[in-house]
């Protein structure tokens, strides 16, 4: 791939647009899209990390939303105790962040250690079941709102370094976090570690024959992806000021997979395009100004979205990626 292929230019243009977005929305006098784009970028962080598992490693984890909820709940629980019980240090963003990263890594370690012993469909179902277990745990804990969730009355306190209550600061924290994750993925996939992960996807027996034990590498990838998504959850809680079990519901994990597939699987920028496409489709379909027989079509947008998904799976296997010009930097 040459340095300035059309594909690189398109990706760069998109990143530039994202970098300038808060100022563009300022000019339009409507900051609505800054919030929406913050959300898109957080989900893109989660989807990009999941792409390491699904796209490069062939590990179809169907429980990735659990980490998103985990990170978000730590912010929520911290704020809850800081305000209800006056435990001020629990509002400290750095403690919350450390707890998020450590806890999501540990949870990913436990889930991964058990799930990765299995293959194929078993793996899909087990990761899904573990995530549901965390979901039901969150539903069951009445102290933190149970089913109804927890409103976060105070965002993480970053001790003056960055003010998360300021929409622009939060946006740039999210944006630069996304860039960092993108760069990390780029380096990771190109490294020896990434080669083992990709190799284990295409032919596990050969990887073993040349002396690698895929399990360790897969588990490491699983933990990396879980930790990054936990971090995305930390950001999400600060953006939404709210956390509830529905964030970790298995359909949310499904959404993340859809984002990856829409964007083109196993491609560095795929999850970003996929997330944008997913959110745009949701927005567009749900606002179709069409009324048939007194029924508003937009209200039932999933009737269109469901079959559309099936069509994408059947006929547009590589998602948006296949519509972009240039050679695909695809991990085979």
């Amino acid at each position: 791939m040459t340095l300035l292929s059309p594909r690189v230019l398109i990706n760069a243009a998109l990143l530039l647009l994202l970098a300038a977005l808060p100022f563009l929305t300022d000019m339009m006098g409507d900051s609505y899209y800054t919030g929406v784009t913050s959300r898109v970028l957080i989900l893109a962080i989660a989807a990009t990390s999941l792409n390491l598992l699904i796209g490069y490693g062939g590990m179809v984890s169907f429980g990735h939303a659990a980490y998103l909820g985990l990170g978000a709940y730590i912010v929520g629980i911290g704020a809850f105790h800081a305000i209800e019980d006056g435990i001020d240090w629990m509002l400290n963003g750095y403690y919350q962040l450390a707890a998020t990263l450590i806890l999501s890594a540990l949870v990913a370690l436990v889930i991964g250690a058990i799930s990765l012993r299995t293959r194929g469909v078993y793996f899909i179902m087990i990761t899904m079941a573990f995530a549901q277990m965390l979901y039901f745990t969150a539903v069951g804990i009445e102290t933190y709102g149970g089913d109804d969730g927890l409103t976060i009355y105070s965002r993480s306190d970053m001790l003056g370094l960055i003010d998360l209550n300021d929409e622009k600061s939060l946006y740039y924290l999210i944006f630069f976090s996304f860039l960092a994750v993108l760069y990390l993925m780029h380096r990771l996939v190109g490294s020896r570690f990434g080669a083992v992960i990709r190799g284990s996807k295409s032919n596990e027996a050969r990887m073993r024959a040349i002396g690698f034990s895929p399990y360790k590498y897969r588990l490491t990838a699983f933990i990396i992806a879980g930790t990054i998504t936990g971090y995305a959850g930390f950001l999400m809680a600060n953006l939404n000021d709210f956390v509830s079990p529905s964030m970790m519901h298995w359909t949310r994990s499904g959404d993340l997979i859809i984002m990856i597939v829409l964007g083109g699987i196993g491609n560095l920028f795929g999850p970003l395009y996929g997330t944008i496409a997913f959110m745009a489709l949701e927005e567009l379909l749900s606002s179709i100004p069409l009324t048939i027989g007194g029924l508003n079509v937009g209200e039932y947008w999933q009737i269109i979205f469901g079959p559309l998904l099936i069509l994408v799976v059947l006929y547009a296997r590589n998602g948006i990626d296949s519509f972009l010009p240039g050679t695909r930097e695809r991990a085979k």
């Binding site: 699904i54 179809v60 899909i124 997979i257 009737i303 079959p307 998904l309 099936i310 059947l314």
Partner: peptide, 28 residues
């Protein structure tokens, strides 16, 4: 029928699409 030859990821996604379709049709 068109999904048998596909990998499990495709099957999961397509049948996930079916769930959305069934839920919304039922609501309709």
């Amino acid at each position: 029928r068109n999904l048998y030859a596909r990998d499990h990821l495709d099957q999961v996604l397509a049948t996930f699409g079916l769930i959305l379709f069934f839920n919304e049709t039922t609501r309709l």
